[in-house]
Write a protein that binds this DNA or RNA. Structure first.
Lengths: 229, 229
DNA sequence: TATTATTCTGAAGACAATTTGAAGATTCTT
DNA sequence: AAGAATCTTCAAATTGTCTTCAGAATAATA
């Protein structure tokens, strides 16, 4: 699933654990260690779900929750907080949090709740991503072109998903790189690897009988073009 | 046991609690938060048992009960409802509910009643889990491939059952580990043991004449693939 | 058309994940 | 407590995937 999770937690160790765990579960995670970073991240990238600690060094998580829910109510929010702060609990749920978890907790439970939130927000049945002859089923990590199953590598899969979610939008090589490799990519990299994966993806799609919707925008990047000639 | 339970309850928090608890008990649960969702779920997937709240935002649980019992009388139904609605109680049992529980209740009690319903209904029913040449009889803990009985170890058995209940869904090594070993597994484990059991299961299945439906999804996990080439 | 920047391609090596067998623990049975 | 079955650990071997590189092809610019 194209599920991005923002982890807002100032405790480094805990944050790392959550990050590690959810990443292994296949989510694409990012960390923010304080209020300000969280805002920055939220503005710059869309997230489906935010795991939010109430106590932050430079602000209250509930403020963040409230503000962000006004902005983007469709974001799922899972509050995590020290136990016994029952007031927070009430307030959090009042202000639009989807669920609440008291520390300490087991990561599998966190995962279960994240999944539950995701499921809840996704009620319109099967959450296929599709366009014309291409169909992606994120649950099964399967891609079909005209009903034949494609075997894509991980990068190819994520690349295609990224394109399909951003149809007709020009994606710079840089943003592609960031999306597929996280933030630790070097700005001055050659991006050769992007070329590679674009190439492989194009090949597999066309070989399976699909059109080549991926057009290159010279000097800028690529775009999944729904109106190709 | 391949027991699937549908939880029909509009209170999010309560639903989550039930979901979490029953899942931990080894049942495979799904949630529906209103009448309509419940119908959708019931139609799309078979359930052995339904935990049903009477008061739903968009309809009366008793209607649902009545309708569904006409359709599929073998489904076990446990009614949950606010206390003192004694009328409901009588009516519910009249209309075919198997048991009744008043809110608030303790989850272990819910679990006990679910178990009881299951036991009761199991006299007549063969609740086999099967796919093509593979048949699992959870009552006897027996697995057949093309009518020859397989002798699987406990882990192998549970692994296969887990796969068969989640056909075509990608299961991460992590979730497999959690499912077979409980939640206490170490995050930084190597998951070597998962590999082992996968290997053994594959071997036994193919040696017995079955196809190798278990495909590895590189970098993510495994999946029981019903559409192997 | 010549020049330059950008993209595409194939091959090779680096890297990462999975598979495997063997051996050591552990659990179960008697 | 002994023996058998099962589970787990470990260390190669194997396989799959990613990245790098160098040269070819293509597009933009003048």
């Amino acid at each position: 699933m194209p599920m991005r999770i923002l982890i807002v937690e100032d405790n480094q160790a805990l944050s790392e654990n959550i990050y590690f765990y959810l990443s292994k579960e296949g989510y694409s995670c990012k960390q923010a260690f304080n209020y300000e970073q969280a805002i920055d991240e939220l503005i710059s990238t869309p997230f489906e779900i935010m795991v939010l600690d109430i106590m932050l060094p430079d602000g209250n998580g509930l403020d963040l929750l409230k503000k962000w829910k006004e902005e983007k109510p469709e974001t799922g929010v899972l509050i995590i907080s020290a136990k016994n702060s029952l007031d927070d609990k009430l307030t959090g749920l009042d202000w639009g949090a989807d669920d609440y978890l008291t520390k300490p907790f087991h990561l599998p439970e966190l995962n279960a709740r994240v999944k539950a939130i995701y499921r809840r927000r996704n009620f319109n049945g099967n959450n296929m991503v599709e366009f014309n002859e291409i169909t992606i089923n994120p649950d099964n990590v399967e891609v079909f072109v005209n009903d034949n199953l494609l075997s894509l590598t991980r990068k190819e899969y994520e690349l295609l998903l990224y394109f399909l979610v951003n149809k007709n939008r020009v994606l710079t090589k840089q943003s592609i790189a960031e999306h597929l490799w996280g933030e630790q990519i070097d700005l001055y990299d050659s991006f050769d690897f992007v070329y590679q994966h674009i190439k492989n993806l194009r090949k597999k799609l066309t070989q399976a009988g699909g059109k080549d919707y991926i057009t290159t925008v010279y000097g800028i990047g690529y775009k999944f073009n729904t109106r190709i000639s």
